[in-house]
Amino acid sequence: MLVGAPKETKDNEFRVGLTPATVAELTHRGHTVIIEKSAGVGSGLMDDEYANAGAEIVDTPQEIFARAEMVVKVKELQAAERTMLRRGQILFAYLHLAPDLVQTQDLISSGSACIAYETVTASSGGLPLLTPMSEVAGRLAPQVGAHALEKESGGRGVLLGGVPGAPVADVLIIGGGIAGTNAAMIALGMGAQVTLLDQSLDVLRRLATQFGGHVRTIFSTRAAIADLVTKADLVIGAVLVPGASAPKLITRTMLKTMKQGSVFVDIAIDQGGCAETSRPTTHSNPTFVVDGVVHYCVANMPGAVARTSTFALNNATLPFTLQLADKGWRQALKDDIHLRNGLNVCGGKITCKPVAEEHGLGFTPAEAFLD
């Protein structure tokens, strides 16, 4: 198979879909790989490293899309890129279609087979291709939140860990999954007082054991959220409904009760965000203020630490990339139900039920394309 990786075009997105090590695995199996010139530079990966691994370096994204049977990316295709997709071509990337009707419609029109990292599942449970970026975003959240709390950033002027004689910051984390757990670990390590909410008692028990009682765990209800946001200096939204838009757990009314200069970091922004006031921002302009609360809603947080993120992502995607290249998408999806769960759009149809429901469009099971 001819596999291609274009340079990412989203604002300050420095990750890359394939590393030289992944290229070497593909070429070792007899596949051809083309990489857009300088695609890996933002992750510290030079063109000669790709060439030494067996890749052909090409000058333009147009050549990638024109030649590749499978396009491997990190972030969703931008509008100009979507016009280059071909019928029957494989797209393997993060898509986050539930909050993005325009992208969904464009992918439907393309006729391509679009496999979303974020809905591929695992036999052990969970979302193995979302996990590494959830780990990164979770660990970044207290860090960017601490910066936003600084006075010059518009925050309250509170140091997350405090100092002797001055109180530490109060950090509230909504959601105890991968991102929330990692956020709690870093916030605790920075010396903050951490409270974590989740609707699963099993999750709360796991967190209580993991953190030895140093993190306060509370069952998540709207009443609990409404009460706790009034006390928090930093709120981190880390909720996830696989494939669907994030629930709006923080209302505008709740926001008005928060401390002036407090900070809200919305890790769930890729899926639409978990506050009524959330809207996607970029690394170039990461924050905005509503009712005195600083919002950080960067939709590609892991791009800030591109080298770490690129290697972490490729470690997870490699087995699936090889399956798709070795077998073709139909056979690979037929053989692996978990990879099949990643198919979001195919042949002009939506094959992910939460996405179809979100947009009020028809749903066609993936199995319909595998005969």
Results as ranks from 00 to 15, higher is better:
D336Q: 11
T257F: 03
H359G: 05
G111I: 12
V345P: 11
H295I: 02
I337N: 12
T83P: 01
P167E: 10
H214T: 11
A244Q: 02
L234P: 02
V163D: 10
E152C: 03
S278R: 01
D233R: 04
S134F: 05
G126K: 07
D233G: 14
I269D: 02
M301S: 09
V168W: 10
G362L: 07
G213R: 13
C297I: 10
F264M: 04
A226S: 12
A51P: 02
P142R: 13
A68G: 02
T308M: 12
E357Q: 15
A166M: 10
R279H: 04
G154Q: 09
T281P: 02
E118Y: 03
A208N: 15
C346H: 06
I34N: 00
L370S: 06
L318M: 09
V23Q: 10
P128E: 05
E8A: 04
L18F: 09
D47K: 04
I174P: 04
V136C: 11
S124C: 14
V41H: 14
V102R: 09
A80C: 01
S109T: 14
A187I: 09
L249I: 10
I64G: 02
Q103T: 03
K231R: 07
A226R: 03
S278C: 01
L201S: 13
A224V: 15
A24F: 11
K7G: 08
T104K: 06
